[in-house]
Amino acid sequence: MNLLEQLCKIHAPAGNEKMLSDFLINYIEQHKVQWKVKPEVLYGDEFQDCILLVFGKPKTAIFAHMDSIGFTVRYGNQLVTIGGPDVKTGYKLVGEDEQGPIECTLTYDAEEGELTYEYAREIERGTELVFKCDFRETEESVQSCYLDNRLGVWSALQVAETLENGIIAFSCWEEHGGGSVSYLSRYMYEQYGVKQGLISDITWVTEGVQPGKGVVISLRDSLIPRRSYVQRIVAIAREAGVPYQLEVEGGGGSDAKELQRSHYPWDWCFVGAPEDNVHSPDEIVHKADIASMVSLYKVLMEKL
């Protein structure tokens, strides 16, 4: 969990993923020699801050978004949300502007719908603020801000250690409208003929999805994946004996929306651990669900 804690503490709100991208590139370069297959590592201007890891002869791609929700300083002490963060008066926010590091307090006026910060000075406009990380681990769970989606990134890195054939894509902007998966998926399709996607992201604990009962295979959210593809994934999970839960939701979305709307014939399925206290500083995930997530991804990347 040390790596997961490091990931959760890195400042990478949607649109400013560079610090996390640089961290991952350094981590990959240090560790890839120990992996079963040494991947081709693709990054640079052509991919903005995204990263592609290409292993062997790929048929399937894992998409894990690097960015988090947060806040942008507007004028005076006003804040604008990045994505859909939980907002409660008293949350601690951190960031940095030209005058130095910042730790301030979020204030939410529910009647007016206004978000502001309390701090000793005015923070420079355009500064991004994120939840202050308080990483907590017990025998059963991990709790922190930004498990969505640093846990999806962490899981993909665990899969990378033994992956023989496949692509892992670390994407940007997912929490605030997306944008990067569109060009990443085009590149993968045109260069490698890959058209099967797995979304390594974190979903919600609900009345039908419980912590500790296994990784979630989503049958639908606001979008509907191709049924035959999802059925293949469920069959592989059942045969492998990996604990899993089936999710049916009418809202929410992920990097999959850009695959669904692609000009290329991509199949996709959301596969991820469920968390409670979504988009707050106190997101919590059961360790049994983390273990089943990694196990299922390893099987799917081999069998699909």
Rank of each mutant, 00 (worst) to 15 (best):
G100V: 01
E111T: 01
I167Y: 07
N2C: 02
L3A: 08
G178A: 11
V130K: 03
A288E: 15
E161W: 02
W204F: 15
I167R: 07
I236T: 08
L300C: 10
Q231M: 11
P13A: 01
G208V: 00
A12W: 12
V54S: 05
V271R: 03
A156L: 02
Y43R: 13
M188Q: 04
R261L: 15
V142M: 07
I233T: 07
V299H: 09
G95F: 08
E5H: 02
P211D: 05
D221V: 02
A288S: 14
G177K: 15
K257R: 15
F55T: 12
S155Y: 07
Q158I: 09
S262L: 04
V94E: 07
I290M: 06
V230R: 05
I28R: 05
F135D: 04
D97I: 12
N77K: 11
H11T: 01
D221I: 00
N2A: 06
L259W: 12
L7A: 13
F23N: 02
K287C: 13
I224V: 14
E140Y: 12
S292A: 05
G177S: 14
K18W: 10
G90A: 08
S292L: 08
E275H: 02
C104T: 15
E40S: 10
D86W: 10
V54F: 04
I233F: 06
N77L: 03
D45A: 14
D276I: 11
E247T: 02
S222E: 06
V248K: 05
I236G: 04
S218I: 01
S182R: 14
A235S: 14
E239T: 11
E239I: 03
E40N: 05
V215D: 05
Y27I: 06
P58D: 07
W173Q: 12
K298E: 10
E283S: 13
G166N: 11
R136M: 11
E111R: 05
K287W: 13
I168M: 08
Q260N: 13
S182H: 12
V248P: 04
S180Y: 04
L53A: 08
T162I: 14
S262W: 01
K92Q: 14
I217D: 00
S185V: 09
A12Y: 08
R121N: 03
Y192L: 09
E128T: 06
D289W: 12
R232P: 05
T162N: 07
V205P: 03
Q231C: 03
E103V: 06
D255N: 15
A235N: 13
W204C: 10
G178R: 13
D289A: 10
